[in-house]
Simulated scan of single mutants.
Amino acid sequence: MQWRLLGLQFVDNADADPGTDGVDVFTKQEHFVRDYSKSIGQEWSYKGYTVDKFRYPDELQLPETLHGATWVFLRRIQGKRFLYLTGMFVDYIENFVLNV
């Protein structure tokens, strides 16, 4: 295989987990892992989707719930990962505990 196109992000951004020195990177719905020893374009891999639509059907991270959520901020508070989301016009802020 010469290349792989996943098409996961459009206008979203991502934030690195400070507790992993930037190895774990999160968008509003996805988890990526970076290996900084690899060359550019080969250093990241898709780890998984962080939303369970069937277990939590009202989850605010779902595209149909927070359509305009594009900015992500990840913080660790007392060892737990918290993901903060805000819209592209910063008209709200939501937070979630990440259990991944």
Rank of each mutant, 00 (worst) to 15 (best):
M1H: 12
Q2C: 07
W3D: 13
W3K: 15
R4F: 14
R4T: 13
L5M: 13
L5C: 14
L5Y: 13
L6M: 12
L8Y: 10
L8T: 06
Q9L: 13
Q9R: 12
F10H: 11
V11T: 12
V11A: 13
V11H: 15
D12W: 10
D12M: 10
D12P: 04
D12A: 07
N13R: 14
D15Q: 06
D15E: 07
D15W: 02
A16W: 06
A16I: 05
A16S: 09
D17C: 06
D17T: 01
D17I: 02
D17G: 00
D17W: 02
D17E: 00
G19K: 11
G19C: 08
G19R: 14
T20G: 03
D21I: 03
D21G: 06
G22Q: 00
V23H: 07
V23C: 08
D24C: 06
D24M: 02
V25C: 00
V25Q: 04
F26N: 01
K28H: 11
K28W: 05
K28S: 03
Q29D: 09
Q29R: 10
E30Q: 12
H31E: 04
H31N: 09
F32D: 03
V33C: 11
R34V: 09
R34G: 06
D35N: 10
S37M: 03
S37L: 10
K38G: 04
K38C: 07
K38E: 00
I40F: 12
G41P: 02
G41S: 04
G41N: 02
Q42G: 12
W44R: 11
S45Y: 12
S45R: 14
Y46V: 01
K47A: 09
K47R: 15
G48P: 06
Y49D: 06
T50V: 08
D52W: 07
R55V: 10
R55D: 07
Y56M: 06
Y56G: 04
P57H: 03
D58P: 00
D58V: 07
D58F: 12
L60M: 08
Q61V: 04
P63M: 09
E64P: 02
T65V: 10
T65R: 03
T65G: 03
T65W: 09
T65K: 04
L66T: 06
L66M: 14
H67S: 14
G68L: 15
G68V: 15
A69V: 02
T70L: 11
T70E: 09
W71I: 13
V72M: 05
V72Q: 08
V72N: 04
V72G: 02
V72S: 07
V72K: 09
F73A: 14
F73R: 15
F73I: 13
F73Y: 13
L74S: 02
R75C: 07
R75E: 01
I77E: 08
Q78F: 08
Q78G: 09
Q78S: 14
G79N: 11
K80P: 03
R81K: 14
R81F: 03
Y84M: 06
L85T: 00
G87W: 06
G87C: 02
G87D: 03
M88I: 15
F89D: 10
V90F: 15
D91C: 09
Y92C: 04
I93M: 01
I93G: 03
E94Y: 10
N95H: 14
N95Y: 13
N95R: 14
N95F: 11
F96T: 00
L98P: 01
L98G: 07
N99C: 13
N99F: 15
V100L: 15
